[in-house]
Design a protein around this nucleic acid. Structure first.
Length: 669
DNA sequence: CAGTGAGCGAGCTTCCGCTTGACTT
């Protein structure tokens, strides 16, 4: 019997349904061999020779692969069709073909065939089986280069941080850039100067209708002032008006004179195209924005949907849909919604990611007739419905809006009001007729006289660029090609576990430790924490994969200067002090020092500035919530676990051990 | 669900990317 090796057990199950009992199908559950965890595992004397070991905990899987391969005639290596998948195929081949102390006399060792398919359908799998190839050594070498580079960066840089800042810290090609994004953004926010400006809104009536228009120009000059601020990985547009204070605003209002006439009515039809079906990144972003799920939570739910066979694979960077799925979806749309919702040709989407490997399809339901899963309203179902709508609507026609711009003038002042009306719902139908974007206007035509009823000067302030949420962070990572679908969620945990950043009300703020560590890396290893570093690496890896470069050369080109810089920093740079935050309060123990806020391994805490002479410590209370502890009546405070997750605890800890994940209800006395 | 910082110096920390499952509120 022949053996087929895939990565995911769910995939194995699906394929065995297609192929019946003729094949045995096993899964590797990801990588089976890797560099050892507790040493560098890269021989610097021997041209970066990597030392591979069986991944701890994978011994059973490996033994089973070996055993079944022995009795197989052909071993089909059907791991994912991307760089990591090629490496897994290679490792499986190595494991299954060794050790061969004495090649069985007369017996045959198995033949290895590399097969690939981009969609898991019976046809695709059977086609792959009759088109066997061999493992692509160049692609494997590209993966080795990627792995070795990440190991060198991570395992040589981290110890520098232990020595120069604090034990246990970490640095890496991906995580250090993520921390930098958050730190840079915080500084951009701090640099930002809020500016006051005023808007003038006027409520007009026409007949029995009322609508609100905004003053947009005065004496032929537009009031809006736009400025673009370049950001570290982005840019930000600030819009304000030329009205700087209340006096100017009132001045304008007192000078407004009737009559006010409709000067111009401009109506345009606008079509809005559906977004593409989900990739991992866009699923995480949408689930966060629309359902409030964290990326971790989203992945856990998606995993369950995938295991039950309800959705395609959920770790993907592709927006492509299997042609069979598109065909079925088109039939479904045609029969349920009708012809006008079906584009003449299928919609195609270009993938946004810079370095997409497109080993899998986009995320979609496996059966479009399944509109709900399990109990309506539960989390799994809500995520499923999101995936369903995104996939189905991606193959539907555009929605059409009629947008109206009405200008109203009075002397040398011009007011503007915009309206929007949905004239054809198109793909929005798959979202359950979402009409939130409409803004209805009364019927207005040129020359109409409208009567003002109220004048409202509105005070505004320009707002700084927003802090990153999980969603906006993942969007940047995908855009820059940093990290992969399988790592977006873990990265976000890592930077919090290391206490480089904390999430507060859904937004990332750098800690003092995060800023110190980032500044150290930017000062001394600028290239590695730059955005193009990963992009450049990918370029090099592509050359290796195409047979146009040797992996050892690429690593050497990176490592020689890196090594020099490591030595220089070791020698010349002193230990960095982590700054403390002053509180202005006296230490209650020694009465001499000042209480300061320090960041330790378990987050912030209070201690005496005279440490180590005075060893006073106390927990740092972030916020008093005004809620009493249900056990002892003390104050309930927000605390953070070792891993940085928020929980609620009693301020009398450790005397009172009360703790909860959820905020306790107010106790009324 | 939780006690920290410095330095002494045992032994140890650390990367990214591919999988799932064992644990808990």
């Amino acid at each position: 019997m022949d053996l087929i090796i895939v990565e995911s057990p769910t995939k194995a199950k699906t394929i065995s349904r297609f192929l019946g009992k003729d094949y045995q199908i096993l899964s590797t559950m990801g990588h089976i061999r890797d560099l050892p965890k507790s040493s560098l595992g890269v021989d610097l004397e021997k041209n970066f020779k990597p030392q591979y070991v069986v991944v701890p905990g994978k011994e059973k899987t490996v033994n089973q692969l070996k055993k079944e391969a022995k009795s197989a005639q052909t071993v089909y290596l059907a791991t994912d069709p991307d760089r990591e998948g090629e490496a897994i195929a290679h490792h499986a081949e190595v494991i299954c073909s060794s050790p061969k102390p004495n090649p069985p006399a007369g017996g045959q060792s198995p033949k290895f065939s590399r097969i690939v398919f981009h969609e898991i359908t019976e046809l695709a799998v059977k086609k792959a089986l009759v088109n066997p190839g061999v493992v692509n050594k160049d692609l494997v070498n590209a993966q080795v280069a990627r792995r070795v580079l990440d190991r060198l960066v991570g395992y040589r840089l981290s110890p520098v941080l232990w020595k120069k800042i604090r034990r246990g810290l970490s640095a890496g090609r991906v995580q250090s850039v993520v921390v930098r994004l958050i730190v840079e953004r915080e500084r951009e926010i701090n640099r930002f100067k809020r500016e006051e400006y005023w808007r003038i809104l006027v409520a007009f009536t026409k007949g029995t209708d009322i609508f609100i228009a905004e003053l947009i120009s005065k004496g032929g000059k537009k009031l809006a002032v736009r400025s673009r601020i370049p950001l570290f990985a982005d840019s930000y547009t600030v819009t304000k008006t030329a009205i700087k204070n209340e006096r100017q605003a009132l001045d304008i209002i007192f000078n407004l004179n009737e009559p006010f006439r409709v000067e111009d009515v401009d109506t345009k039809e606008l079509s809005r195209h559906s977004p593409p079906p989900f990739t991992t990144s866009t699923l995480q972003q949408s689930a966060y924005r629309k359902l409030g799920f964290s990326s971790k939570q989203t992945m856990r739910l998606a995993q369950r949907l995938y295991e039950r066979g309800w959705i395609t694979y959920h770790r993907t960077d592709s927006t492509n849909l299997a042609s069979m799925a598109v065909e079925k979806m088109r039939q479904w749309i045609n029969s349920q919604y009708g012809r006008s919702y079906l584009p003449p040709e299928p919609n195609f989407y270009k993938t946004k990611a810079r370095v997409a490997q497109e080993a899998h399809e986009a995320i979609r339901p496996t059966d479009f007739n399944r509109r709900e899963v399990e109990k309506i309203g539960n989390r799994e179902n809500r995520l499923y419905r999101l995936i369903w709508s995104q996939a189905v609507s991606s193959q539907m026609t555009s929605a059409k809006f009629e947008n109206t711009k009405v200008e109203i003038s009075g002397e040398d002042y011009v007011f503007l009001v915009r309206g929007s009306r949905l004239i054809f719902d198109g793909y929005l139908k798959a979202w359950g007729g979402n009409r939130r974007d409409e803004e209805r206007l009364p019927l207005l035509k040129k020359g109409d006289v409208v009567v003002p009823v109220t004048f409202s000067p509105i005070r505004n302030f320009t707002s700084p660029p927003p802090r990153y949420s999980e969603a906006s962070l993942i969007a940047i990572l995908e855009k820059e090609g940093i990290g992969r679908p399988s790592t977006y969620a873990p990265i976000i945990s890592t930077i919090q576990n290391r206490r480089y950043a904390e999430k507060s009300e859904g937004q990332f703020e750098p800690t003092v430790l995060g800023m110190v560590t980032n500044d150290f890396l930017v000062d001394h290893f600028k290239e590695i924490v730059s955005l193009p570093f990963t992009a450049n690496m990918e370029e090099g890896l592509d050359k290796i994969a195409n047979g146009g470069a040797e992996w050892k050369k690429l690593i050497g080109q990176f490592y020689q200067p890196f090594q020099k810089q490591l030595e220089k920093v070791e020698e010349q740079v002193g230990r960095v002090k982590i700054p403390v935050q002053k509180t202005g309060k006296k230490c209650p123990k020694c009465k001499k020092g000042e209480l300061v806020i320090r960041t330790g391994r378990f987050g912030k805490f209070l201690s005496c500035s005279r440490f180590p002479e005075c060893r006073y410590t106390a927990p740092y209370i972030e916020k008093l919530l005004g809620v009493k502890c249900p056990q002892c009546g003390g104050d309930v405070v927000i605390k953070r676990t070792r891993k940085g997750k928020q929980f609620y605890g009693c301020s009398n800890y450790p005397q009172c051990k009360w703790a909860s994940w959820r905020k306790p209800k107010e106790i009324s006395k």
